[in-house]
Amino acid sequence: MKSFYTRFLLIAFVTAVSFFSAGPMSTPVNAKSPRVVEITAKRFGFSPDTVTLKKDETVVLRLKSEDVTHGFFLRALKLDEDISPDSPTDITVTPTTAGTFTTICDHFCGANHGNMKMTIVVE
């Protein structure tokens, strides 16, 4: 019986510690670290081809290229970045207007460059 109570108390203690620590530790981490959305560019498209963001939510767009230098241009959100195949490009954005926006590659990357685009939806 003694070992049963000991085991019970131990489990209860560990559970309690886990429960209470999860809240205080996770909240500040979430507040300081925006959600990261990865977007990969490759001739002649983006993956995923649609990304949904929340209005007024700060997010990091992590842009990668699998082949050559691409562009990431969205006039409405004032985004105009190059995406090098050598290293990712991080952009922190906080969209303030809801809507559906077309983002294009604006760094010439080859014959079908003119149709390389994706959609960003802000809800």
């Binding site: 241009f73 006039r75 105009d80 077309t102 294009i104 604006d106 003119g114 685009k117």
Partner: peptide, 12 residues
């Protein structure tokens, strides 16, 4: 000028 930025019809 920004004729149609979504179609890359502009100069930044």
């Amino acid at each position: 000028f920004d004729l149609k930025p979504d179609w890359e019809w502009f100069t930044s």
